[in-house]
């Protein structure tokens, strides 16, 4: 299968309904501050008409667009929903979106639970999820990227998270959407070294990066909420990621407690600043 991943560059922002109004304002008043690319969640926009279809067209026409699914249940116990994958493929074609990503996780048990469940880190799970990723890639006619998810507990396993991730990337022959915040959250919640994890990731598989804020619920527990600003240790980890793997397109996710748009734009500016810092160091 050929990789038709259209490499985006720079700093991107996840498209959310709650941001549309301010986003349009920014397009009129300060277009120089706009994100370099966007990411949409097909599951939130597929099969919609009226205003939503018009907005989707507006944004996908103007910005290089990546996509990030939620409902495929790549690791799930049910058969893949091939009908849904067909609809997904048509949506991606309709809006000219070359690149699709999903979570290394599952979200069904005969029905949808609408959030991400932790896979056990076992050889059996590697085998299962990899064969399904291959099937999805085949049906969509695209190489896809999988995201390392945040998790708060994992059912009994036999390998580490990083070994599990690397095994799936290799077995499924797919790309990686590396979520830097998730590495931080997991390293904290499961007491491992985030730098070791980042260093071990195969550079050539990285498609793009995610950044997000989280919630420190208790001293030993961070919840991955996408509801707050990115914190300093995660910014540091982003810089470390660039130093390990070179500059990668980086997308800011914000799903809850949406702040005024300019605060998100300020965070994009930080991403760009780090990207330029690394580029000029390298030059």
């Amino acid at each position: 299968m050929t990789s038709d991943t259209e490499k985006v560059t720079g700093a991107g922002l996840g498209l959310r309904r709650g941001l549309l109004e301010e986003w349009h304002e920014l397009e009129e008043k300060q277009p120089e501050l706009l994100p370099d690319f966007i990411e949409v969640t097909p599951d939130n926009w597929m099969g919609l008409g009226g205003r939503y279809a018009r907005e989707m067209r507006h944004f996908t026409d103007r910005y290089p667009t990546l996509s990030h699914g939620l409902s495929l249940s790549l690791g799930g116990p049910d058969p893949l929903d091939t009908n849904f994958i067909d609809r997904l493929g048509r949506f991606l074609d309709e809006y000219n979106i070359a690149t699709f990503s999903e979570h290394l996780s599952y979200c069904t048990d005969g029905g949808h639970l609408y959030d991400l469940l932790p896979l056990p880190f076992t050889g059996e799970a590697v085998e299962h999820v990899s064969s399904r990723i291959r099937a999805v890639q085949k049906q969509l006619g695209r190489r896809i990227a999988i995201e390392n998810v945040s998790f708060y507990a994992a059912p009994e396993g036999e390998m580490s998270e990083i070994d599990f991730l690397i095994a799936v990337l290799s077995e499924a022959d797919c790309d990686l959407l590396l979520d830097v915040n998730n590495v931080y959250v997991n390293s904290h919640n499961h007491a491992y070294d985030a730098h070791d994890f980042i260093s071990a990731v195969p550079t050539e598989r990285i498609s793009w990066l995610h950044m997000a804020g989280h919630l420190r619920e208790a001293p030993d527990l961070i919840i991955d909420t996408h509801g707050d600003k990115v914190v300093d240790p995660v910014w540091d980890l982003l810089q470390f990621t660039y130093s390990c793997h070179g500059v990668q397109p980086t997308l800011l996710e914000r799903d809850f407690n949406l702040p005024p748009m300019h605060e998100l734009i300020d965070e994009l500016a930080i991403i760009r600043q780090y990207q330029q810092g690394v580029s000029s160091d390298a030059a």
């Binding site: 116990p77 048990d109 469940l117 056990p120 059996e124 799970a125 299962h128 507990a153 059912p155 009994e156």
Partner: peptide, 26 residues
């Protein structure tokens, strides 16, 4: 499969807070 058992055990424990079994490793 053992994987499916682990998965159903986990989701049953989520869907039903009165469910007595705590999945192994959790």
């Amino acid at each position: 499969s053992r994987l499916a058992q682990q998965q159903y055990e986990f989701t049953s424990a989520l869907r039903d807070p009165d469910c007595a079994t705590t999945p192994a490793g959790v």
